[in-house]
Simulated assay, not measured.
Amino acid sequence: MTDNLFQPFALNETITLDNRILMAPLTRCMADDELVPTQAMADYYARRAEAGLIISEAVIIRPDGQGYPNTPGLFTAAQIDGWRTVTDAVHQAGGKIFAQLWHTGRVAHPYFFEKSGTSDVLAPSAIAVEGSVPRMRELSYQVPKAVSHDEITQLIADYGQAAANAIDAGFDGVEIHGANGYLIDQFLHHGSNHRSDEYGQSPENMARFPLAVVDAICARIGNDRTALRVSPGAYFNMASDDRDRAVFDYFLAELEQRDLAFLHIGIFDDAMQFDYLGGSASSYVRSVYSKTLVGVGSYSAETGSAAISNNQFDLLAIGRPFIANPDYVAKVRQGNELVSYSDEMLTSLV
């Protein structure tokens, strides 16, 4: 019933995956206090190298991108060296791994980066996200600063540098985190982008910064090693707005021309329906984007395999079951029972 998951899949002429099962990015907060990956992280990823592709936990591109404790970075020499230990371990185990590049935008908190010389939380507009920092509930989110043109220019350059750092660290490519209510996604939704300049109001303007980041990274490492995660449906740290459909209609049409390695849906449960998208996030994207698409969001191997057979997407990303089952791919192939995920598993890397 799941045979199609074990077929090789060519992303392009550069990268061919051994199977269609991806390990989804899973934030674990297990880097050291300097945000350097540890040996335990290298062991953790290497045990899951049978995935057709591992997408790393989100990796912050610079200090003010941090919104959670002990999330790894990719902006210092020590962090690059730490990731090299991880990628070497994955490659020695026969796997491939992309780095997910991340800036949390208004979900950042200066508690994590004041020592770097700034306390500004950056976002498209000065609109705070509600609530407090997960795992550190004593920290409430702050009203961010609307980024200036000069700051936007620097952010684009820093994304490009982070991609180059990822290749230096041995990653096979990068996935830009443009989803789940973080910085890039904040530009793409009317609920978080109230700008009146060339980065706001119209679909073309709201997509300007995200497309500039994509283009900068493609210029540094090649479009064949560049992927993107998107959340056309606002659902996490973001208010819904029917006008977002027009933004993503434009954005996805532009991405179609860039021939990326893949596009990855950002959703926790792909059964979620969005009226302004006419259904699920993945069905909407598939209807307007013809290139390689990764589905995710509470699929099992069986339901994901069926979705691929039905041409709903091309590749299946699996999240929490990979935490509970380092040998997930082998178990599915052999028809063995999976260990059920539980939240207690988040406290250790196994």
Rank of each mutant, 00 (worst) to 15 (best):
I318R: 13
Q7E: 11
R320Q: 09
I21K: 12
S298T: 14
I80L: 04
L316Y: 09
G178K: 11
V230S: 04
D64P: 10
S280A: 13
D172W: 03
D33R: 07
G170T: 07
G65S: 10
D158S: 13
N223V: 02
P25S: 05
Y276R: 07
S340V: 08
Q257M: 03
G82L: 02
R48I: 03
N19H: 10
R208T: 06
A93W: 15
L155A: 14
R243V: 00
Y111W: 12
N223F: 01
G304T: 03
Q334H: 15
L74I: 15
S280N: 14
E57H: 02
R220M: 04
R243D: 01
S202H: 10
Q154W: 14
T85F: 08
L346Q: 11
H264R: 03
D244A: 02
V230I: 13
D81C: 04
S280I: 12
L183R: 11
Y141Q: 00
P8V: 09
S119C: 03
A219V: 04
Y250S: 07
L5C: 06
N19S: 03
R258V: 00
R229Q: 08
D81M: 04
A42Q: 01
Y68F: 11
P144R: 01
G170L: 06
N193G: 07
V329S: 07
M1K: 15
P210D: 05
E151W: 09
E151T: 07
E138Y: 14
K331M: 10
E138F: 15
Q79P: 07
L11P: 04
S196E: 15
A42G: 00
S132Q: 10
P37W: 05
L188S: 07
R258T: 01
A306G: 12
N310T: 11
P124Y: 10
G295C: 12
E204F: 11
H91N: 04
V350S: 14
I217L: 01
L349C: 00
Q142I: 06
D81P: 06
E337L: 13
F112T: 10
I60P: 08
F262Y: 15
G173A: 02
S56T: 05
D150S: 14
I97A: 00
R20E: 00
L211H: 11
E130Y: 09
G160R: 09
D120N: 11
R243E: 03
L293I: 05
L26E: 06
A157H: 14
A246Q: 13
D259P: 04
G67H: 09
W102H: 10
T118N: 01
D81L: 05
D259F: 02
A157I: 10
D158Y: 13
T76E: 06
N165L: 08
D224L: 00
F9K: 13
N4C: 09
D168W: 15
Y299L: 10
S340D: 14
L338M: 09
D120K: 11
I15T: 07
Q154L: 14
F313G: 08
A146F: 10
P37L: 01
Q201N: 12
V86K: 00
I318G: 05
D88H: 12
D18P: 14
I217G: 00
Q161L: 12
D120T: 10
L252S: 03
G295E: 14
S348T: 13
V285P: 05
M206Q: 15
P37A: 00
H190Q: 04
F171G: 00
G191V: 03
L338W: 15
M238K: 12
G304V: 02
V59D: 06
N12A: 02
R208C: 06
R62A: 13
Q39S: 04
M272Q: 15
P144K: 03
